[in-house]
Design a protein around this nucleic acid. Structure first.
Lengths: 113, 113
DNA sequence: CAAATATATTCAAATATTCTAATATATAAA
DNA sequence: TTTATATATTAGAATATTTGAATATATTTG
């Protein structure tokens, strides 16, 4: 698998409310599954399923302390991603000038005869 | 819809090889659908479907020149996203110290008795 | 060792996504 | 005004994702 496709798989995983909440929590530090259960309103097995998916893409890893599995973030890409997800974007991009009512404008390429 | 869910929907859309290729192309400038057809190996109707999805989430917009629809990027979030997708991440995050073989470590929270 | 706790896995149903084929629409050219 | 070109929409099949329920596994405690 090439790098782009790997990133696409990661984006797909992050694009889920429960998984993004898990990742956001792990970005603050090590958490065990019970910690996550405390603030996620989904069943335990479902949390484990999401953690499993995140593990398989090497986004997270864990160590064991007794019967606790302690998860932590492994991917620096995720930190950058979480950051722009939290960032506020009040403005649209400037964009090419075109009439906002008729949506008419001039194509800049060479396809026009 | 709140801001987080909007961003999640956007991530879901970006997490697709054809759509990310389209967005990457639009990040370089205005392109009409035929321009996109030229380097995407999918059928025209499929490209239109992807463009439609991107329009509905307000990621892109278009203007019309004759029979050409000229698409352009509207969302600054996408520019930041494309940038980190292209960025190289050679290192893993440092992570908590734990034995890489046994995966044993010490839970930092207060759940341990 | 038995019971309790923490977590993972499997399976199946429900739901969502993706793609192709067919067709529709709008503009321009002949 | 017929025809060609550019693009969009719809419908349906194929595929993938998500979740809950049930169950399995490992560790600790009594």
């Amino acid at each position: 698998m090439n790098i782009l496709n790997l990133k696409i798989d990661i984006l797909k995983l992050v694009a889920h409310p429960v998984r993004i909440a898990i990742l956001n929590e792990l970005s603050k530090g090590v958490k065990c599954v019970s910690d996550l259960e405390e603030f996620l309103e989904v069943r335990q097995s479902n949390i484990s399923q999401h953690l499993s998916a995140l593990r398989h893409t090497e986004i997270i890893d864990y160590f064991i302390d007794g019967r606790l599995r302690c998860y932590f973030l492994k991917s620096p890409f995720i930190l950058d991603l979480l950051e722009i997800v939290k960032k506020d974007y009040p403005e649209e991009l400037p964009g090419p000038e075109c009439c906002p009512v008729t949506k008419k404008g001039t194509y800049p390429g060479d396809r026009r005869k």
